[in-house]
C-alpha cells in the first residue's frame, strides 16, 4: 500500500487560485465545475487578525467513506494506493458517495452524469510528475509525494513543520496536510 500525500504551506499560500485553473485545464474539467477550490479563513478582530489560505480538494482519505458508500465499486482506490478514483463505466450516479464525503469534494460530471473528483492527477503521478495544481503553484507552497518514503518532501515537511489536516475527527484519515 502506497500513501500519497499533498502538503500545502499556508504560510506561503496567497490564495491566488492558480491551482484551480491549472486543474481545470489539465483535466479538461467542464465550465462550471470545480475539483479544487481555495478557502480563506480569518480569525480574530481588527487589528489582531490571522488569515490562512487553503487550497482544498479531495483528501484521498486512507479511510474513504465515499469508497465505502459506493454500491457498485465505481469509487475505488487506484492500484495499491490511497488515490480515490471513480470508474465512470461503473457509476450509476446514485450520489451516495457525494453524501458520504465530509469535504464536499465530489461533483456530478456534466453532461454525462457520472461522479467526478480530484484524481491527484494520477495520470501524471504515473509518469513521475506532480499533480497539475502542485506543478503550477507560483508560490511553490504545494508539495506532493509518498508518505511511505521517509526521505520524500512530504515526509520531511510533516516531520519538521507544525501541520494539520482537515476534519481528522471524521475518522476518514485525510492525506492533504496544511503546514502552519
Amino acid at each position: 500500500m502506497t500513501t500519497y500525500a499533498m502538503v500545502i504551506d499556508t504560510i506561503t499560500c496567497i490564495g491566488c487560485g492558480d491551482c484551480v485553473v491549472a486543474c481545470k485545464t489539465e483535466n479538461k474539467v467542464p465550465e462550471g465545475l470545480n475539483r479544487d477550490w481555495v478557502v480563506e479563513a480569518t480569525s480574530g478582530e481588527y487589528p489582531n487578525l490571522h488569515t490562512e489560505f487553503r487550497s482544498e480538494r479531495c483528501n484521498h482519505c486512507s479511510h474513504a467513506t465515499c469508497v465505502y458508500a459506493c454500491p457498485t465499486g465505481a469509487s475505488h482506490y487506484w492500484k495499491d494506493t490511497n488515490i480515490v478514483l471513480v470508474a465512470a463505466e461503473k457509476c450509476t450516479g446514485c450520489k451516495a458517495c457525494i453524501a458520504a464525503c465530509p469535504y464536499d469534494a465530489r461533483l456530478i460530471m456534466r453532461p454525462e452524469g457520472y461522479i467526478d473528483k480530484c484524481t491527484f492527477c494520477h495520470h501524471r503521478v504515473d509518469d513521475g510528475l506532480d499533480p497539475a495544481c502542485v506543478a503550477s503553484c507560483p508560490t511553490h507552497c504545494m508539495h506532493f509525494g509518498m508518505l511511505d518514503n521517509p526521505d520524500s518532501i512530504v515526509s520531511r515537511l510533516l516531520r519538521e513543520r507544525r501541520h494539520k489536516a482537515l476534519l481528522p475527527e471524521t475518522g476518514n484519515e485525510p492525506n492533504v496536510y496544511y503546514l502552519l
Partner: peptide
C-alpha cells in the same frame, strides 16, 4: 520572469 510557473491568469490564458 516566471521561473517555470505561470500565474493564475496566465494559466487561464487559453
Amino acid at each position: 520572469h516566471c521561473r517555470g510557473r505561470l500565474c493564475t491568469r496566465g494559466t487561464g490564458g487559453i
